[in-house]
Amino acid sequence: MLRKMYDWIDERLDVTPIWRDIADHEVPEHVNPAHHFSAFVYCFGGLTFFVVVIQILSGMFLTMYYVPDIENAWESVRYLQTEVAHGQIVRGMHHWGASVVIVMIFLHTLRVFFQGAYKKPRELNWIVGVLLFFVILGLGFTGYLLPWDNKAFFATQVGLEIAESVPFIGTELKTLLAGDPTIVGAQTLTRFFAIHVFFLPAVLFGLLAAHFIMIRRQGISGPL
């Protein structure tokens, strides 16, 4: 039955080569913790992706309750935190996941760096990886404002002042982020929401796809 369904799909879409591209490869000995325990350092990249998936899923559920406007944002987060079933867990996963993903991507970057794994032919993948790091930091920064509590508001104000200190384009940059050259308010919240939920995740997905396709093309770097 399953076989027939697979054949029916395969006849029309020829999925076998795609499937082979994704799953049909050998895991070399030097990255397999079953053979060398020190190979656990190769887990950090995968765990980063794992936490990113947690962030995407928990974030999707958070938007079911979150209201991105200054009157209701804080109230909706408080309601989610105190009244909604498992709301505390879902928000907790998103909150702590934001920290853990940074820890993981930091460790992953250090692993790749100290092994010199970014050397030819893997320069492009390193660049995509560092861009992913920037995007994740950006997600952390924009997500911080969304609960609209005092911590969020004042930290964002500092962040926007830093953006403003950029020479030549500072004011424009701040206006782009905050919606106004001086006020941190309703516009800022909706803009940060849009950046956090639509713009940066779109960039994130594109870069992740590029990262993984390149890994599959080139394979993991060999042992030192």
Partner: peptide, 22 residues
């Protein structure tokens, strides 16, 4: 996960602090 009081732009005594990774 922590939640502080609702943002109050007039709160002059508040000391801003970013998330730990910043």
């Amino acid at each position: 996960s922590p939640l502080e009081l609702q943002a109050d732009p007039n709160n002059a005594s508040y000391i801003p602090l970013p998330d730990w990774y910043f």
